[in-house]
Design a protein around this nucleic acid. Structure first.
Lengths: 411, 411
DNA sequence: TTAGTTTGTTGGATCAACAGACAAAGTCGC
DNA sequence: GCGACTTTGTCTGTTGATCCAACAAACTAA
């Protein structure tokens, strides 16, 4: 139960040799330092069960690869010879995350320690541009990010509000962008000049869920992330793994039928969840047609700030609308909690901004509608990542590859 | 990406040494023979990438442990020295699965090759017995199974139609049994005399999903199993792993709100999925109150056989009821497919028996209501395991432990 | 009968982790 | 200030698993 992780009885495991043994232990040490902070070699040996001599050898190799560095002497211990702390050396390698969304393009580069080395977000009306032009503009941004990186680039991952086929990275359907059947991964790879690092494409909510997973530093391995926008996206992490499904189309929660007598959805049916919890639903109830908060040409964050202001001022119409959206959020949220039993339900996108008003009704619905005792232990939290969640998740997915196989970084 | 399986970036991997390296490769060879059938050492070496000499050594150890045996010479090859086939030696070790359900107790013992060495199912009115007495009777059955096993017992796993806490094996709530807050795992372990093998308890649908996963011999690693009974249970396998959620309470699909104007459910709400697709819903629509097919004191399988007979005879009322249940099944099924994007939706329990009539409306709903193109590639199949799915899954879960760590079997 | 092919074993090489000894570097008590 | 004690990190030699190359065994085909 140590090498192959034991939870995949049916899948073919891979034979191991000295090289993979070493790779595994390099990964163990590197992740140990990431997760538990700077440590002396002796403590790493104690914690992991590895031999002191082995840890010294592993640390030496990781230092040589630029992934760890020697820090200050350990001043916390009082007895005996003080240890030399070993800590993450972020600068050697970066992961790049990019995003195409309805109203903007965004790019971020994170170094190994999770610090942002480069970050940019530009407003772009993607729906009114052809995919090629959009991709050209995004490529420019990514090239800037790559240029800003000191060391090596571990990979680029692009987030899109779309159904993306897992294997090929082909975009199948992005209603809000007006794109379909477009080989984004290949097109982006070509524009970047077939770079040596991997280029992937994934669903926005999936990547945001990964970012949320990394954000919670606790011992939590099952979460559901809900991103509120015009539509509603879902990302699921279960057992510490992103749930992708067989073709990468998982997490389509927006069209759950919850209100049969409700409004018509973009998908053609009536009563889909996103018709009652999407941003449009909130604005229709909380504002008049000529209210600037409802004007889609204005910046979303400013419009949300206005709604927040009204709610804080105690405006009854706004509060009622928020209560209603929260109630509907709870109905669908409880379905998800019943199926997936997560530790945490994370509110992202506009749900996070308006979290103070949405959390209570959501929590109540979980208590009342989830069959497991005490809602299966599920908590509701607001993401702090704002609209950077997806790009961060994309950058992290590349960094994870380095943490899992430190030998990917040139010596 | 070989040793630790790479899909769990956040979890702590375990340091590896020579022993775990050997264990991993023993497992690889054993599973290779299980999954791809008898093979010569040379072919195993070719397929796995291991060295011929290494495979010889690994096979020798597995033979010594009674997990593999030398078979006949390979007659398919025409050129060169014929290889000695190596095949699974089932007899050395067995997994035991048990089940407590509303109307019966069941036990099965499967050897390493999946063959049933012992199998029994006795009708018991569990709801009218106290838990202790039921467990006494089950213990008798399990002891018979253990006695029937030739070699070693790898473990016992009990399936219950209940919410079971993953870690402790405590039964939290089993409405259909009338049990709650009962430490089944501990109680059973004690009655078996604290045996050397592990004793676990899990949800019935979870284990049935595992059995269905093993039943499909294809390269499929994402499936959803639906068991139809008075209630409806769900089991999810994703990425080859059973989805348990944070506390083991996943798969509670029965109380999805799908029919707000519908019948009152046992849970107190109205319109839960199981009020429209549970066996009761079908019988209420298809039969009169005095119809023997509706009589709960008769054997379920016989009542279902009667329904099948009527449907085959073209009885309009029966067919209409089946069509309606199928339509409702599709509405909830599509929600699950949208969230989980499985390769396969497996019909179990009474859904499997009446599959010929339920499949078509369910497939139609998936085509129409799933956002992913072509329903995300999801197929609907009927389980062939009947009411033995859960016990088989329980037995297999113990056998999986042996396949993952062959050194668990005494030499 | 001989050449050619494939299998499975053998002995030695390699490589990574392990075990124990030990010097280095600090604290504590007297 | 000094010795006893504790802890760190390195060094040396051992263990163990895989790999490599050579080779005998077993069979086919010409």
């Amino acid at each position: 139960m140590t090498l192959s992780d034991g939870r995949r009885p049916g899948s073919r495991a891979v034979a191991a040799d000295h090289v993979s043994l070493r790779r595994n232990n390099l990964s163990v040490v590197l992740r140990h330092v990431r997760d538990l902070g700077p440590r002396s070699r002796a403590r790493i040996a104690d914690d992991t069960g590895l031999n002191k001599a082995t840890v010294s050898s592993l640390v030496a190799e990781l230092v040589e690869r630029g992934l760890l560095r020697e820090g200050s002497p350990d001043s916390t211990r009082t007895l005996g010879r003080p240890g030399q702390l070993v800590e993450l050396d972020g600068s050697g390698v970066c992961g790049v995350g990019a995003e195409i969304n309805v109203e903007y393009l965004a790019v971020i580069a994170l170094d190994l320690s999770g610090a942002a080395v480069f970050e940019q977000r530009v407003p772009v009306d993607v729906a009114n541009l052809d995919p090629g032009t959009t991709l050209d503009r995004l490529t420019d941004l990514i090239k800037q990010a790559v240029a800003a990186v000191n060391g090596q680039v571990a990979g680029v991952t692009l987030a899109v509000p779309a159904l993306v086929q897992g294997e090929t990275g082909e975009l199948k359907l992005a209603p809000n962008l007006g794109w379909s059947e477009f080989p984004v991964a290949d097109e982006l790879r070509r524009r970047l000049g077939d770079p040596p690092y991997p280029v992937h494409v994934d669903n926005e909510a999936n990547l945001a869920a990964l970012a949320a997973y990394a954000e919670l530093q606790e011992d939590v391995h099952d979460l559901v992330l809900l991103t509120g926008a015009v539509g509603v996206g879902g990302g699921v992490v279960t057992g510490g793994h992103l749930l992708r499904g067989s073709q990468g189309y998982s997490g389509e929660v927006g069209h759950m039928p919850v209100a049969p007598a409700g409004r018509t959805c973009g998908c053609g049916r009536t009563g889909c969840w996103e018709t009652v919890v999407g941003l449009t639903a909130l604005l229709h109830q909380a504002t008049d047609a000529d209210d600037p908060a409802r004007d889609p040409s204005l910046d979303v964050e400013q419009r949300l700030a206005e709604i927040t202001r009204r709610a804080e001022a105690g405006d009854v119409r706004t509060l009622t609308a928020l209560q209603d959206v929260g109630d509907w959020l709870g109905i669908g949220g409880a379905v998800l909690v019943n199926i997936l039993n997560p530790d945490v339900l994370v509110l992202g996108g506009y749900f996070a901004v308006l979290g103070p008003w949405l959390k209570a009704p959501l929590e109540q619905a979980i208590r009342e509608r989830v069959i497991a005792p005490d809602g299966g232990g599920c908590r509701v939290v607001q993401s702090e990542l704002g609209f950077t969640a997806a790009v961060r998740g994309g950058a992290q997915i590349s960094l994870d590859q380095v943490f899992l196989d430190p030998t990917r970084v040139a010596q």
